[in-house]
């Protein structure tokens, strides 16, 4: 059993600690804990979501505990009966892992005032998606005079030694590879064409970054001029004066659902539900859509504005047309094989 495997020692230590420090056993009355992501996510949630939640819930106590998805899963797994986290935030891959390991509760859809207003793709019964992450093409407008329009542009001879990608450790790298497979006649189930395409991309590759964050550094250093990139991350770079632009390729920008979940056995179930409700409100989503956050909203009642309306979509109808969603269940099944293949084949 998973509980035994991963947490035998942790559990033993916890039990020991509870004997040694009986005060720990009263941890039931702890405040609501929301494990958001680190960096810009934490900033956005601290500034917008937390105040909105507290205002609507009589100043209920809550803490943000930012950490990676995998760490959230490991922590909850280590103490399933009394989890240290009440609300988890996940990319599509880890979300399925968390659901598969029975760590999250179904969202009480019938109680929710906003769930039905979410666009269809965001309505996930095991935890709705309050935000989208969007991946498209990023380029340096000082070096690339004609903006790219398609993923295929990365293969153009003029970008010899100028293209950056990330490896498959990240959601971005994996999602991008799936899009390339689709472009070449493959799919989530048939990744072969993507690896063939990567082979042809090698002369153009300047760098395979270890994570999407490293791509930003490479743009700053002029190491690369064009790469797949995350809309939010690019806007942050742009605001800091780095010459980068984002464009949605004509094949469609890749949209990842960032889903939010109530942790199973949470002692703060009701407050957890209230927090997620707050994240789904048009007010919170509108504020988060505006600068400096520029997070793509999922509530159809939100009127698109600013940079998002200009670059991505003016309304939910256009959004649905321009975004592509991927089958992460299929992706997860084979991801380890892909990573292994990428390790072996991509050497530049």
């Amino acid at each position: 059993m998973i509980l035994n495997r991963r947490s035998l020692m942790t559990t033993a230590l916890t039990l020991g600690a509870m004997k040694a420090f009986p005060g720990l056993s009263f941890a039931q009355a702890r405040p609501l804990v929301f494990a958001t992501f680190t960096g810009s996510w934490e900033e956005a949630h601290k500034a917008v979501l937390v105040p909105a939640f507290r205002k609507a819930n009589a100043d209920a106590a809550m803490v943000l505990d930012p950490m990676l998805s995998v760490d959230q899963i490991a922590k909850v797994n280590a103490a399933k009966a009394n989890p240290p986290i009440d609300v988890m935030l996940h990319d599509p891959g880890p979300a399925l892992v968390a659901i598969g390991q029975d760590l999250v509760e179904p969202y009480p859809v019938e109680k929710s005032a906003y769930y039905k207003d979410l666009i269809a793709e965001a309505q996930e019964p095991m935890g709705p998606a309050p935000f989208f992450q969007v991946v498209g093409l990023t380029y340096n407008p000082e070096a690339v005079k004609t903006p790219p329009t398609s993923w295929a542009d990365l293969w153009k001879p003029e970008f010899k030694g100028r293209v950056g990608i990330t490896n498959l450790n990240s959601t971005l790298g994996t999602g991008w590879l799936v899009e390339i497979a689709k472009m070449r006649g493959g799919s989530e189930a048939n990744i072969d064409p993507a690896f063939k395409a990567l082979e042809e991309l090698k002369p153009n590759l300047a760098a395979v970054a270890a994570n999407p964050g490293a791509l930003a550094t490479l743009f700053q250093q002029g190491q690369i001029d064009i790469s797949p990139g995350n809309f939010n991350a690019i806007q942050i770079l742009k605001a800091r004066g780095v010459p980068v632009e984002f464009v949605a390729p004509k094949e469609g920008a890749i949209a990842f659902k960032t889903t939010i979940h109530i942790v199973k056995n949470s002692p703060n179930r009701e407050l957890a539900f209230k927090l997620i409700e707050a994240a789904l409100t048009p007010e919170v989503q509108t504020t988060l859509m505006n600068p400096p956050y520029l997070i793509v909203p999922t509530n159809s009642k939100v009127t698109m504005g600013g940079e998002i309306a200009r670059v991505l979509a003016k309304d939910t109808a256009e959004l649905k047309k321009k975004f592509v969603f991927q089958d992460w269940k299929k992706i997860n099944e084979q991801r380890s094989a892909w990573i292994e293949r990428f390790n072996r084949e991509i050497k530049i």
């Binding site: 495997r5 991963r6 990676l68 995998v70 899963i73 892992v97 990330t166 490896n167 498959l168 450790n169 790298g173 760098a207 395979v208 970054a209 270890a210 994570n211 490293a214 550094t217 991801r335 380890s336 990573i339 390790n343 991509i346 050497k347 530049i348």
Partner: peptide, 26 residues
């Protein structure tokens, strides 16, 4: 290793991280 070496140069620490963190193959 990962910041200066990048994602295509695989050394043991990154290999470990990949298996443990991304693939959950503990």
């Amino acid at each position: 290793q990962s910041l200066v070496g990048g994602g295509q140069m695989l050394f043991m620490p990154m290999y470990l991280y990949q298996q443990a963190s991304t693939l959950q193959n503990w």
